[in-house]
Write a protein that binds this DNA or RNA. Sequence first.
RNA 1: GCCGUGAUAGCCAAGUUGGUCAAGGCACGCCUCUGAAAAAGGCGCCAUCUCAGUUCAAUUCUGAGUCACGGCA
Length: 339
Amino acid sequence: MLKNKDTLTQCSKKVNRKSKLIVILGPTASGKSDLAVKLAKSPALSKIEGFNGEIVCADSRQVYRGMSIGTASPSLRSPGLPVVIHHLFNFVEPNKPLNVATYKKMAIKTIKDIQKRGKMPFLVGGTGLYVKAIVDNLKFPKMEPNAKLRKELEQKTAPQLFGIYKKLDKKGALQIDKNNKRRLIRAIEVCKITGEPFWTQRQKAIPLFDILQIGINAPKTELEKRIKKRTEKMFKQGLEKEVKKLVKKYGWTPVLQNTIGYSEWRASSKPLGGLDFPRSHSVALTASHATKKELQELISLHTIQYAKRQMTWFKKNERILWVKNYQEAARKVLTFLND
RNA sequence: GCCGUGAUAGCCAAGUUGGUCAAGGCACGCCUCUGAAAAAGGCGCCAUCUCAGUUCAAUUCUGAGUCACGGCA
């Protein structure tokens, strides 16, 4: 049954069919990376001619160099798994932040290149916006962040910023998050420099690829358990050393300050009421045994919270096919490829 | 055993010289998302240790009890 269909679609494929892209997403610690590797090298799937996967990162932190342990980079995972080529991992200095728009350009270029070589790209990661940028082909306002203007606007209060924005973009003002300074600043930035209202510049373009989105998730309690275990493992793998090394080399860059597993080691990192976190944790970089344990708990908590936020993002995406295991995923991939 | 201090949400923690009391913060639940996204922001949820007294009215004042912490012995 599939064979007949196959020959039929084979023809049209060459004419105007978009190239295929498989997206694997889910919350942190759900097992995306392992699943992707297995799918990419699956013997069952390799029967299909030309099927041979390469992985492209869709994770806003795994792109940075030297942050392997804290971001659970695939480079140090599951030594038993087959070797698959990974792209856009571990390649940016943590003092040169990468943003969505730049990421999108690079990812698309990488995906197209993989397709050109006759291989199947797997976009793998948990950063909702990054995935969306590719899947929905988001068209970002062509306006690079302006550090000077941002600094200037940063001094103002949210109501003040809202006042400014209202004058520049009436329609946008009705919808924007009034209390969110970061968004207001970006919106003003775009309006001021491009001379056009921000809201009309947020657009989607025609999708670039024929996309299958596979989501993997676990029940909440199980995911929490896995996160705790993984955090413990990070400490054993030498997270402390990694953090120290990075801080020594780059200082507390915005990236390091904004990454779970790293920021917690910082002196001024916010203590947590619920955990009764001691002030002494400000000496985290020379942490005592007790403090380290608390630090580990804090990192686990932050990771669990992050996982929930990720799910909030993914829940909305109705095109995601949620699977429980490799078999289910493999079946979906097979159908997708034969389609 | 005696003296002192305290007891407010799952945790931390304000004010009320008596007026439907109940600020914050964290956790927890839900959500928003177009160049910082592991970011930023929004909404929701939960409370005065027990018993008695004074009073029109007690979370607040008084007494006793219970528990906790500190000191003395």
